[in-house]
């Protein structure tokens, strides 16, 4: 950290530096897969030089694909529920043709909020508060290349650090909500998204 402002925490100090991104030609099926597998809220779209072109969020995926294709999505769900798995192929083929023509470029936000590496922690928090739809925020260098990404999770890391090993908070996560938990259903996966992955 530089000596001039030793006390300031900057974007480059808290950002995630290994950034997963997609290209503008990535199919939205692959975008959906990456977002769900990594449990992301959003994903940057970059060109081959790492320049930021846009950002795609879970929200974009829902609103920009479902309008045209909600009947297709319903059909997929319907087939799965009725366990007519032999018809799944047909349903998918039919609908997937339309949806697979959609690429990252067609649904991304082309003017995403970005911040520089030297943005202060205060400024980053202010940005998240002012833009309540924005999460995550790509961090770019002077050339416009993505060098990191900051999510709400990164901002809340201090609270998590404090929570651990603090005798006055609940030691085990279970105890704090067990009594409120709804009855477990049979065969249903848990709320933890990660467990869905095969």
């Amino acid at each position: 950290m530089d000596e001039i402002k030793p006390k300031k925490v900057l974007a480059k100090d808290i950002m995630t530096k290994k950034v997963l991104s997609v290209s503008k030609d990535t199919s939205i099926f692959d975008v959906a897969k990456i977002i769900s597998e990594h449990n992301f809220d959003g994903l940057p779209v970059t060109d081959k030089d790492g320049l930021l072109l846009g950002i795609i969020t879970e929200y974009d995926l829902i609103i920009r694909t479902s309008t045209a294709n909600s009947s297709f999505l319903q059909k997929i769900l319907g087939e799965v529920y009725s366990k007519k798995s032999k018809n799944m192929g047909e349903a998918i083929e039919e609908g997937a043709r339309e949806i697979s023509s959609l690429t990252a470029e067609s649904i991304m936000n082309k003017e995403p909020l970005i911040l520089g590496e030297d943005t202060t922690f205060e400024e980053i928090v202010a940005a998240f508060i002012a833009h309540h739809r924005v999460n995550p925020i790509p961090i770019v260098n002077s050339e416009g290349k993505v060098v990191g990404i900051i999510s709400r999770f990164d901002i809340l890391r201090p609270l998590n650090l404090l929570g651990y090993g603090n005798p006055r908070t609940q030691g085990a996560e279970q105890s704090s909500y067990d009594r409120n938990r709804a009855k477990p259903s049979s065969g249903r996966m848990t709320a933890q998204k990660n467990k869905f992955y095969s």
């Binding site: 099926f29 692959d30 897969k33 977002i35 769900s36 829902i62 479902s66 297709f72 769900l77 869905f196």
Partner: peptide
């Protein structure tokens, strides 16, 4: 809400 995509992708 995005489950249909996840089903299609084998997730």
């Amino acid at each position: 809400v995005l489950r249909p995509f996840h089903v299609l992708q084998g997730v």
